[in-house]
């Protein structure tokens, strides 16, 4: 029953040129998706420091999404390749910490892929609903 009422908290880092624009287009096209996501604009997905992702989990995020341009399409040429490498590494660190690496989603969404943005948010939200709340890191740090 918990699953029906649980609303996961999702923080998304979207690159300004592709994914943020894709999210904008989803809005312009009046596509509908769940309210759980909060988007933070970054110039490029490679701007996202791994520490920011961990901080989001510490603050009680149940899922973090990093979205950038498709490989080869990066506005800054190579940024998303760095993202891919760093986030792969971060995922293995999350496993090591006992944090399910599936809570971190790295996705390539271009500026015209409004549908892909909507589908990604929908599927990630429903997946996190099934996974339940992520208490792991939050409990460690914020036990009061």
């Amino acid at each position: 029953m918990m699953q029906d009422t649980f609303e996961p908290k999702i923080i998304a880092f979207c690159c300004n040129w592709c994914s943020y624009a894709g999210a904008d287009l989803a809005g312009t096209g009046r596509l509908k998706y769940p309210e759980n996501i909060r988007i933070i604009r970054v110039p490029c997905s490679s701007r996202v420091d791994s520490a920011l992702v961990l901080r989001a989990f510490q603050n009680g995020a149940d899922g973090v999404m990093i979205a950038g341009c498709h490989p080869g399409d990066c506005h800054y040429d190579t940024g998303n390749y760095h993202t891919r490498k760093r986030m792969m590494l971060l995922k293995s660190l999350m496993e090591f910490m006992g944090l399910d690496e599936e809570r971190l989603l790295v996705k390539w969404i271009s500026g015209n892929e409004a549908d892909r943005f909507k589908d990604t948010v929908e599927s990630f939200t429903s997946k996190l609903k099934k996974m339940g709340a992520s208490g792991k890191v939050r409990d460690l740090r914020c036990a009061k």
């Binding site: 604009r41 970054v42 110039p43 490679s46 701007r47 420091d49 940024g79 760095h82």
Partner: peptide, 24 residues
Amino acid sequence: CGACAGLCRSGAMDIGGFTGRQLL
């Protein structure tokens, strides 16, 4: 783009308008 700031180990690198402090 911030590829450098995303990677800097000592947090010395920042991007105007998207500083580490702001994102945090």
